[in-house]
Nucleic acid binder design. Structure first.
Lengths: 117, 117
DNA sequence: CTAAACCTTCACGTCGGCGTCAGAGTCAAG
DNA sequence: CTTGACTCTGACGCCGACGTGAAGGTTTAG
């Protein structure tokens, strides 16, 4: 299929699909005209990318971890121990971000309440 | 005092102080030479700005709410009801951001565990 | 054959709170 | 007077995942 159909089937914009290729996350074939040609497997590949992006990974990180991911019927499974380490670090970073936001929210509540400590 | 001293007394960079002025958050006097001259009150003003930035407000939002803030000995208190509304909205936005991050973290945990649903 | 879809490669714009030069003027102390 | 610390105004850089044209080829239905 060409880029338009992949975009429709994944709900991801054509621009994003070209961007993923630019970042090395997708490697579609090319027709003589230059048109990108994707296989059915790329639909799942795009899903994997989106899941990892939604997990807060950058495209560079995804590029590293993609070869270590097993797509077991829609369920992503890590196949390398160092990948697990990376994901754990990422999870911890997210945890820190959550803590910061909770602190921020508490500060806001203090201001809203306008009460003395 | 001039900008260097204010920077030292607040721990905020000179660049940031100039930026705050650019955004209308500070209005220091000027010497004929163009040097900015700040008063003692500006130390507290910068503290207010930092607290609000840390609360996730943009400089544009801070510009709106600053006139409504009473600085009661380091404790910020809202003086206008519409400001309270604004702060509540901001708090809710932060709550949503926290929820999203928690979802993200849960997704990551699912991948890390690599277990079937 | 023609026109509408569809596709291509640039390449700049976005958002925000600054960091970081560059080039030049100001001021206080010795 | 001179030196060196201090300050000024631009103005580009950053981070990241794309959005959004522009200008032009390709494919396909009718």
């Amino acid at each position: 299929m060409r880029i338009g159909e992949l975009a429709r089937r994944t709900g991801v914009s054509e621009r994003a699909l070209r961007y993923y290729e630019e970042q090395g996350l997708l490697r579609p074939e090319r027709r003589p005209s230059g048109y990108r040609v994707y296989g059915d497997a790329d639909v799942a590949a795009v899903r994997r990318i989106r899941v990892l992006l939604a997990a807060g990974l950058s495209t560079a990180q995804i590029l590293e971890v993609l070869p270590c991911i097993v797509d077991d019927d829609g369920l992503l499974t890590p196949a390398c121990p160092e990948l697990v380490d990376e994901l754990v670090k990422q999870r911890d970073r997210i945890g820190e971000a959550i803590s910061e936001l909770e602190t921020t929210r508490a500060n806001l509540n203090t201001i809203i309440a306008g009460q003395r400590s």
